[in-house]
Design a protein around this nucleic acid. Structure first.
Lengths: 181, 181
DNA sequence: AGGCTCATGTAACCGGTTACATGATTAT
DNA sequence: ATAATCATGTAACCGGTTACATGAGCCT
């Protein structure tokens, strides 16, 4: 559902190849969406069939040829349409294997859980640090307003921040409660 | 991956039908896992093929017959094994369509976004209230320790609490920033 | 009369994952 | 030498979603 629209969104900024798209997903969208290359290539084909994107082949010496994709007018309409749907409760479904394991933990190994919680905290703190660096750049940029992409990019970073903090605080609380028994 | 283990986990407490399982998923596990009935029935079949569960048919007068499933010894081993894997970073992948829409919001409708954020806050607050009621029951129960299921059930409720708070705080911050422009 | 609960499922589809494949260039 | 980067993909599989189907009894 959404990966296709993510591709349309990125193409609305800039024409690019499937390969470029996959790097953007990794670098900029990874904390709210992650995408496999193979899926991106497949979806690009599907989007092309529906005339939402088109491409031109660019021949390159000494490198493989590129397919440079761009969004069509139909694609732009579809994108705006999708964005404006915003919040749908039924899309708000969670799937958290770690939490499910914790739920059934009375049957598991306590020491392994403690170790996992420590790893989880470390993992989230590392992530948090990298987010804070990105955040700094945004805070210094005073040009942002709500007609500006930067404003919304910043807001998604803030969400990442709140989520990571929640993860860390929770895991620390669990560890404390386990140790105080 | 995990739904199968969720089924094994629930069956480790009590023998039950696919129908019962689907109610447990809705009522108790829904904030970290959600499952369709059709998938539960399909997975029960797969689990049976692998001898991880087995069932007995119970005939009922004036109601459809039941298949009462129970976990096998092999299934119990598999469950414990799975629980002890705990935290795997590569399972920690997020997919959040709402956040993706916010990311591309410069192309969307500001008023629609504000409305969506308010709906989102309301939705999360409603959820929070129902969690707090469940939480109360747990707090009054002093028998919980780390060998006890209740201890871990309570911990997963705490995670829900932290997540919902994060969602609400974030959305309120975004609304404030949008209004102060 | 219409909808909810109990109880089972099948079929088709969609979206995401994993593994495999190619091949040149550039950096360590 | 070997690993990484650029650039394309295919095939098989797995897991989750949606729609459809049946049928009795109970509640409003």
């Amino acid at each position: 559902m959404s990966l296709k629209h993510g591709i349309l969104g990125l193409l609305s900024y800039e024409d690019m190849t499937g390969y470029d798209l996959s790097k953007y997903f990794e670098q900029s969208l990874s904390f709210f969406w992650n995408a496999q290359k193979s899926q991106i290539y497949r979806d690009l084909k599907n989007l092309e069939k529906k005339d939402l994107v088109e491409y031109k082949v660019k021949h390159q010496e000494e490198k493989p040829d590129k397919k440079i994709y761009s969004i069509t007018k139909k694609g732009q309409k579809e994108l705006v349409n999708w964005i404006n749907q915003y919040f749908k409760p039924d899309e708000n479904k969670v799937r958290d294997p770690f939490l499910m394991r914790v739920f059934f933990s009375a049957k598991g190994n306590t020491e392994k859980l403690k170790k996992a919680l420590k790893d989880y905290i470390k993992y989230n703190k590392t992530y948090l640090k990298s987010l804070e660096k990105v955040e700094d750049r945004f805070i210094k940029d005073k040009t942002k307003n709500e007609d500006n992409d930067q404003f919304y990019w910043y807001m998604t970073i803030r969400k990442g921040y709140y989520n990571l903090k929640a993860n860390i605080n929770w895991a620390e609380e669990v560890l404390e409660m386990m140790n105080s028994l």
